[in-house]
């Protein structure tokens, strides 16, 4: 069984008398440790696909199974738990909360968990160091550059140590050099075992990924698999541990 099993996803948006078929029976399997880039023309359904896979909006038909959990069969709060435990989102427009400082933005997913303040700060400190923003922990997002803001967003996506990172054009608002460093960061995360699904318009970024999907008119028209990475034994243990937390929750 793959980490993410996507079966026959369909989504139609209806506004007034016009319906848009954003997704037409899309199926896909993504294994643990893959780095998948998703490309395609504007309006081809990439963002829709990502939000459905991430448990943010329900499909009209089809299933998304993550780690053997049929996510849309979960009760509502279960879906929130799943997002928090399994998925980290990174958006094109960073989506930081403007009145929370860097540290607080990174801690946001932990706020409802009841984790001790000390432990929260320790975990966030490590991650901020990793993305190179430890010094700016007390800054507000408005005081940071675009690249720095996106690093904060990535740090926030990592705080719960999720298995999967979903990124929708994370470099869309950044200049070339900054984009490269962000892509380096994603590559590093993938090498450490994160499964990444990333929408991008830059064909050059395929080289960072292990697999490239092409969308057109709500269907997958290309699937170019380069190689399936091997999971390290350490990582597998870590994953089993996380699974236990999930099933006992």
């Amino acid at each position: 069984m793959s980490l993410i099993e996507i079966e026959n996803l369909s989504k139609v948006y209806t506004i007034g008398d016009t319906s848009t078929h954003a997704l037409r029976a899309v199926s896909l399997q993504i294994d643990d440790g893959e780095f998948v880039t998703v490309m395609g023309p504007s309006g081809s359904g990439k963002s829709t696909f990502l939000t459905i896979v991430g448990g943010l909006s329900a499909p009209m038909s089809g299933r998304v199974v993550i780690d053997e959990i049929d996510i849309y069969s979960l009760r509502r709060d279960g879906l929130s738990d799943l997002r928090r435990e399994y998925i980290g989102f990174v958006f094109q427009s960073f989506n930081l909360v403007p009145y929370l400082n860097v540290l607080e933005n990174v801690l946001l997913p932990l706020a409802p968990t009841g984790m001790q303040a000390k432990k929260q700060t320790a975990v966030a400190g490590d991650i901020l160091t990793e993305v190179g923003l430890y010094e700016k922990a007390k800054h507000l997002p408005g005081e940071l550059s675009g690249g720095e803001q996106q690093r904060v967003a990535i740090a926030r996506a990592l705080i719960n140590d999720p298995l999967i990172i979903l990124a929708d054009e994370p470099t869309g608002n950044l200049d070339t050099a900054t984009s490269e460093s962000i892509m380096q960061l994603f590559k590093l995360l993938n090498e450490r075992g994160k499964t990444i699904l990333m929408v991008t318009h830059n064909p050059g970024y395929r080289s960072y990924s292990t697999r490239a999907i092409d969308f057109r008119d709500g269907t997958i028209v290309g699937d170019d698999m380069k190689y399936i990475p091997q999971m390290s034994a350490d990582y597998r243990e870590g994953r089993e541990f996380q699974q236990n937390i999930w099933t006992h929750d």
Binding site: R76, S80, D81, F89, L96, P112
Partner: peptide
């Protein structure tokens, strides 16, 4: 939307 995306429940 951000709160919900990072795993806040409605009650949060």
């Amino acid at each position: 939307g951000i709160f919900r995306a990072v795993g806040f429940k409605r009650k949060h």
